[in-house]
């Protein structure tokens, strides 16, 4: 009963906080930040989803999550030049999945028994390697990448246009959060991944190959990272080496922590919240030069890190996470 209760309570806290935030922002005139936070934060959420997935299954914070996406972008760029956009998208996701598979086989698996912190550093190494290869390939030149949906003004909320591309991102993210939630609670494979993360020995003893699960999880997370990139980045029109790591990894990490690190809906909610916080910090006079909460010389968006610290101290399990 306790478990159910606390899960529901967490959900209520999350929903309550969200409603309070929405009302508050509308009252203080920052309602645009709501829309911007949703549209921009959904990209954070998507990356956070992959982070949560890996963390959930192996207890590792995957620094390479961003680069799964950037690699997908390069493949999209290369394939789109000479072919069908949607086939290029599929190719890009396949490339991301392949990179996830290779990362698992070549880096994660040999370090299976090593302390998690070693693995964490190893994933950072994968990211740096990927960025190095990207620099070698593209030489710091940005590459253009086209949108799948070009209309920008179909939907306008609070005077903020939500581009069709963003709409696609939001819908995809919301659907993924729900589908993955079901996957982890309703399917044998999903349950096995959770089981393996907690009791690898027992998992083997019921006949499940933990290593195969690990491969599957990394491929899935990498494809999610690729999906985040190929949907979110075209809205910006171009990208360069390390694009996903530099733009999205830290906010996504914050989002994942905010959401509870292992909670998939939490990653979604956390991403949107981080987007809103960044937007408010950028626009609200309170945080600008001369504002009551401004710290001279400190970028207003550092507030995001303050939020992260507060969350970690006050509620280590995150908004939607469960106490270990």
């Amino acid at each position: 009963m306790g478990g159910l209760f606390s899960e529901r309570r967490s959900l209520l806290i999350g929903i309550g906080a969200t409603v309070a935030l929405v009302v508050f922002l509308i009252v203080v005139g920052e309602e645009k930040s709501l829309v911007i936070g949703l549209t921009q934060g959904s990209a954070y959420g998507m990356v956070a989803l992959g982070l949560a997935l890996i963390y959930k299954s192996s207890g590792v914070f995957n620094f390479a999550q961003g680069e799964f996406g950037t690699v997908a972008l390069y493949v999209l760029y290369l394939l789109d030049i000479k072919g069908n956009y949607w086939l290029a998208i599929i190719g890009a996701l396949a490339a991301a999945g392949l990179m996830g598979f290779a990362t698992e086989r070549l880096v994660v698996r040999p370090l299976f028994e090593a302390p998690r912190v070693i693995l964490l550093v190893a994933t950072a190494g994968v990211a740096l390697l990927a960025i190095g290869v990207e620099l070698w390939f593209a030489d710091a030149q940005a590459k253009p990448v086209a949108k799948a949906f070009s209309r920008n003004d179909r939907i306008t909320v609070f005077d903020v246009q939500i581009t069709d591309q963003r709409l696609w991102l939001i819908v995809t993210l919301a659907a993924l959060a729900v589908l993955l939630g079901l996957f982890f609670t309703r399917t044998n494979l999903g349950l096995a991944i959770i089981g393996a993360s907690q009791e690898p020995t027992a998992t083997e003893l019921v006949g499940i190959s933990v290593r195969r699960l690990s491969s599957f999880t990394w491929v899935l997370a990498a494809v999610l990272g690729g999906l985040a990139a190929v949907i979110a980045i075209p809205d910006l029109g171009s990208f360069g080496p390390g694009a996903m790591t530099s733009n999205y990894l830290i906010p996504a990490f914050t989002a994942a922590v905010l959401g509870g690190m292992t909670s998939l809906p939490g990653a979604f909610v956390g991403g949107v919240l981080i987007g809103i916080i960044q937007s408010v910090a950028t626009s609200a006079p309170l945080f600008q030069d001369g504002g009551e909460l401004a710290i001279p010389g400190v970028p207003s968006t550092l507030i995001v890190f303050v939020v992260l610290l507060v969350v970690l101290v006050a509620r280590p399990q995150g908004l939607l996470g469960k106490r270990a």
Partner: peptide, 17 residues
């Protein structure tokens, strides 16, 4: 206005707005 020299997309989108 000043913009974060390493502005994230969310910050840039806010300024653009």
């Amino acid at each position: 206005k000043r913009i974060n020299k390493n502005a994230t997309p969310a910050e840039a989108a806010t300024i653009a707005q």
